Computed example of a mutant assay.
Amino acid sequence: MSTRDRSQGSSSDRAYRWTKDRILDGRFEGGRLISEGEVADEIQLSRTPVREAFLRLSAEGLLRLYPKRGALVVPVSASEAEDIAEARIFLERHAAAKVIASGHAAEVASAMREVLEKQHALSYPEQAPEFTALDRDFHATLVNAAGNALFDEFYSSLRDRQLRMVHTALRHDNPDRPRIILEEHSRICDLLAAGEAEALHSLIAEHITSVRKQLPTV
């Protein structure tokens, strides 16, 4: 590979990451039309690597390309949000039951509280991307503790959609939602440590469903 090819690839990756980050954290909201020129000017690149980045994001279903007009940020659809919520509830309930049965619930709850403490230390909305990333890490800690490699892989595949859903919900929800999320996370830790499976299963479903309900209908 020539130096020029490597440079082009690096520029394309940079444009891809920059644009994708803004789609996932809601700075580029669903329904917004963005252009190659807009992104190129922002990150001081030519349009060619930006065009390549747009093609990658289109293949991932995050952008819909319109020649000579730009790219539409594809909104999170109601059916997609429903599917993701259903998958998460199933996986997290299963993980909770397995962790409680293993006798290591207190240890896992302690690990989740460590993530929660980091989330508490953040200022929202100034640190919204970090808050949402830790939200995802909090739930992933529970799923990973169940010790099922296939479930871990599937849950990881939901990462981008999960981050985008939470960001979108927070932007359209009431200002108290971050506080409510933190309180519910704390209750999840308490119920897990106490081994109260039935109450924990109900709270997990309520917690995940509440985020889905705040998404705009598309």
Rank of each mutant, 00 (worst) to 15 (best):
Q8G: 03
L192E: 12
S10T: 09
I181N: 07
L122P: 00
Q119T: 03
F131H: 11
Q127L: 15
E29M: 11
D83N: 10
R159M: 10
A85Q: 11
T3V: 05
L24M: 04
Y155M: 08
A85K: 01
I43H: 09
L150W: 12
S2N: 04
I188F: 12
R212L: 14
V99K: 13
R164Y: 02
S79N: 10
R32N: 08
D83I: 09
V99H: 12
R164L: 02
S210D: 14
E42G: 01
A109V: 01
R88S: 04
A15Y: 04
E130Y: 05
S210G: 02
E183L: 15
D25T: 02
H201I: 01
A128H: 09
A53D: 05
S7K: 08
R164Q: 12
S110E: 15
F154V: 07
I84P: 10
Q127W: 08
A140D: 11
L163H: 09
P175R: 13
V211D: 15
V39Q: 10
V39G: 07
V218N: 13
R113C: 05
Q127R: 15
H207D: 07
H207E: 05
E196T: 02
M112R: 09
I180W: 09
H167V: 05
G31M: 13
M112G: 00
H139Q: 07
A111Y: 07
S123D: 10
E206Y: 08
P49T: 03
M112A: 02
I89K: 09
S110P: 08
S123M: 08
G103Y: 13
P75E: 13
A121I: 04
I208E: 15
G9F: 06
E82L: 14
H104W: 08
L163Q: 09
D41R: 11
E184G: 02
L116M: 08
M112F: 09
K68R: 12
I180C: 06
A96S: 13
I84E: 13
E107V: 10
D13I: 06
H104G: 08
E114S: 11
S202R: 13
W18R: 02
I23C: 11
I180N: 08
S35M: 10
P175L: 15
F138Y: 06
R4L: 10
V115M: 15
N148M: 12
S58L: 04
F54S: 04
L203T: 00
A87Y: 07
I34R: 09
K98T: 04
A145L: 10
P129S: 14
L191H: 06
R136K: 05
A128P: 04
D190Q: 13
Y124G: 04
V50F: 14
N174S: 10
P178E: 15
R22C: 11
S157G: 06
K20E: 09
E92M: 15
T141H: 14
M112P: 03
A109K: 03
S58I: 02
D13G: 09
P216H: 08
D137A: 13
E114W: 02
L142S: 03
I208F: 07
D13N: 08
D25F: 06
A149S: 14
S123Q: 11
G37W: 04
A194E: 14
S79A: 14
A81L: 12
